[in-house]
Write a protein that binds this DNA or RNA. Structure first.
Lengths: 114, 114
DNA sequence: ACAACATATCAGCGAGGAGTGATATGGCGC
DNA sequence: GCGCCATATCACTCCTCGCTGATATGTTGT
């Protein structure tokens, strides 16, 4: 197992933190989760996530820039999809971890209930 | 592969987001990373992460409440350790994902450089 | 009991980011 | 070309969270 760096200013750590923040929002998680099942156009994402259209677009731009999703134009629709299966793996890992720590996480009030 | 829920208000998604937020901070990542290598007392974490002592304590309380770390008193020291190997797995998977998307994540300016 | 060290707690400040609403751009069919 | 639909952009507000500084609690040796 690779040793982890511990200096908070390390570039490695900052990259990790930045990536985690990409996932640390219910709206983006909803979008990513939906895209893990199947590629979808924006208006479909709006329907399923019940977010406003500008909101979805904003998040998609961010996810696109970060390389977490990719997009193809199909007529006047733009279809978004997960860029790598590793994302699905990551989400599954979180669920696995939640099996162990879910109670504690619920209880922790350092973060509000979203 | 399990289907992911897509409604942003789902309890599942909110739990995931909350857990991700636990990891979405350089300071906590530094602490967790250090603890992945070996159990450590607070003052040792302070040395390695170069964070202030109250700051480390605050993060540790959060991580403890969330069940991500555990603690044992040894004399006047309190030794903290990772609560589950799944955490190490999660961190490794993030690094794996970063191998693919690191460039994009660096470039994305929706989040500042921490 | 007192001094010294280890850790925890808390209030207050400051900054980053999520959501909204209005608006702009772009492609399609008639 | 003109509406219409799909998507993107932007300014603004509110709220949340991380850090600091001062202080409290706790433990060990002498």
């Amino acid at each position: 197992m690779a040793q982890f760096v511990d200096d908070r200013k390390s570039a490695t750590i900052e990259r990790r933190a930045k990536l985690f923040r990409g996932f640390a929002d219910p709206s983006r998680l909803a979008i990513l989760g939906a895209l893990c099942n199947e590629p979808l156009a924006v208006h479909e994402l709006v329907e399923r996530t019940k977010l406003s259209q500008p909101n979805v677009s904003n998040h998609l731009r961010c996810l696109l820039e970060c390389g977490l999703v990719a997009s193809d134009r199909h007529g006047r629709f733009i279809r978004y999809r997960i860029s790598s299966p590793r994302i699905t793996v990551l989400l599954s890992d979180v669920d696995a971890l939640l099996d162990v720590v879910a109670v504690g996480v619920e209880a922790c009030d350092n973060y509000r209930e979203a």
